[in-house]
Design a protein around this nucleic acid. Structure first.
Lengths: 343, 343
DNA sequence: TTGTATGCGTTATCAA
DNA sequence: TTGATAACGCATACAA
């Protein structure tokens, strides 16, 4: 692996000239020498060593993106947006998946700190506030996506979960539903809480009773949603509609419905938060709240480059809107809405 | 950001001692000083700078994983497997998405070279052989996953595409199908070619005529598959079954079928290569060839660490088996198998 | 066991 | 415009 020194020797110039010719200001070197250097580099198959460059600058040209579930299309869409913007600004995006494990999240963030990432975007549900704080304290800017970090002021981009959830539940109410269940997420996840708040507010605004048995606190995963939905169906007076807190839980709900032979939308309406790639292929196609996922990732990356440009800019909190996509899984409730499915 | 020198000063020792105490052999430093150093580091909130460490060693503790479509569940599953193994061996996994763009692939590989990745796993369809060769020439080991790289001997892990495709088509033949179409992938992609070969061999073995109009060369994308399927349905004598080359094309096929109101499995059978997360939720649930995706990623990472251990080991080519999962989208062809759908 | 000194490959400062 | 040289932060060969 040839270094600049080798190139310099071959070209008969100094390393400083090589450096200037290859990376730095091409203007600050005469045309003749520039040619010689380029040729020598070519001949030797010289390749720059960024490790040294990074060390010199004290940071790498890398953005870290910490996500909690790489299998979730939501996060991959965010990653897409973030990567596009990062690339455009000359940064590489390092994707780190924590699989919902707090330990992995902490160790990942440590690694980002040690590797001196230029910036970090966190899109996780668990809160490794301590690790994040340390990261910030050594000068690595952080952007939170899909949530804000409690007790740590950072730039952030998120969806207005409450309003979107409110809209989804209101849609069900307008169709005539009164018993609307929610298969929720963990209450220590801010997004889950906000979506619950929207659900609650819709009940209040439409003068419906909030029955505790109709809300199920889950964990954003399919398996738990499956179990919760079964329980919902087993109620003496089951719901006529279900609002599901995210795309994975929506899958769980659909599976439970299928398993019990409950047909959508005539026997049960379903609206899920967050879209699924195959949502329109399902039978019926699913009504969902669509999030601007790509844009969220892109904006997050933009915030990061902005922060690097002006480290002292005021903290920005971007709030985006979700969109209700009405497809086939929602309709008016059945005429006789009582009696349950266990006949 | 305090450095080792700061810690050394505060602890009243030399930087060498700090280095030994913190990273190197803890045994080579007396208990008393160890304590002092640890304390000083704690007090100063010292955090190691891996950039310097990397530079010293000439390489980083990073595995690069280059994939061509981060939205494809196949690749994310591979990534999961690779990351788990990488983490276990103390490496971070850098995920780079090229979105099928050869330019992005080349620039990504350049970045990996410049950042001196410890190793790179490539799971792309386009062949940036030149960039890969350069990477290898500067000493970065490469593992190919899902394919091999033409003209570049590297460790690799792939699925026996031909055999799996053969099995899928044979399944259709056994059900009684004679007119079996294939919505294929680009012929310059090795995996697509291999799957076509399996399709072809099944025809030969079962003494069926290979009709050119039944094979459509696509591009692994949903949109093209949609168009091809429409064309297939418009044939004077349409197929009674379709074999689809990957998960994305399968979605395209399903959409076309839906749009034309062609029912599976009674009017049309479908078997897709590669599973989909929601394949069993579709109506009917899809019959597919399942690939050991997680294992592929894990094995690829294992090959990388092995290669780093013994750089001169003989090149290993791991071949894994696909598994046919028969669900609801395949059945015997309709009695009257001719006439088309345009009545 | 501890400290001194050197080098890793760049970039940037300063003279020439 | 070009070159010599000093950092950058860490790990280690060698000396003490």
């Amino acid at each position: 692996m040839p270094t600049m020194a080798d190139v310099a020797e071959r070209a008969g110039v100094s390393v400083a000239t090589v450096s200037r010719a290859l990376s730095g200001d091409r203007k600050r070197v005469s045309a003749g020498l520039l040619q010689r250097v380029l040729l020598a580099a070519e001949d030797l198959h010289y390749y720059p060593n960024n490790l040294a460059r990074n060390m010199r600058f004290g940071s790498s040209r890398i953005f870290g993106l910490v996500i909690s579930d790489i299998g979730n299309p939501f996060f991959t869409a965010v990653a897409r947006g973030a990567e596009d913007v990062a690339q455009r600004h000359g940064y590489s995006l390092v994707l780190a998946n924590t699989d919902e494990s707090p330990e992995r999240e902490a160790s990942t963030l440590s690694a980002m700190a040690a590797e001196r990432a230029a910036g970090v975007i966190v899109a996780t549900t668990n809160e490794s506030v301590e690790a994040l704080r340390r990261l910030q304290s050594i000068g690595v800017p952080i952007v939170a996506v899909d949530r804000r970090i409690e007790g740590l002021p950072t730039d952030s981009v998120a969806v207005d979960n409450e309003t979107a959830a409110y809209g989804a539940v209101t849609h069900l109410v307008r169709l005539g539903h009164r018993r609307i269940a929610m298969v929720g997420g963990p209450h220590d996840a801010r997004t889950a809480r906000e979506r619950y708040l929207g659900y609650e507010r819709a009940f209040r605004d439409h003068r419906l009773d909030l029955e505790p048995e109709l809300f199920r606190e889950g964990n954003f995963r399919e398996a738990a949603a499956l179990v919760h939905t079964r329980a919902l169906l087993d109620l003496a007076e089951p719901p006529t509609a279900i609002f599901s807190v995210n795309n994975l839980t929506t899958i769980g709900v659909v599976k439970a419905l299928r398993e019990r032979g409950v047909r959508m939308p005539d026997q049960m309406s379903l609206v899920g938060f967050d879209d699924l790639p195959t949502a329109e292929l399902l039978d019926p196609p699913l009504t969902v709240v669509q999030q601007p996922t790509y844009q969220m990732g892109a904006q997050a990356a933009e915030l990061l480059v902005r922060r690097l440009d002006e480290p002292t800019a005021t903290v920005e909190k971007v709030l985006l809107a979700g969109t209700l996509i009405v497809r086939g899984s929602t309709a008016a409730p059945p005429i006789s809405a009582t009696g349950g499915f266990h006949s």
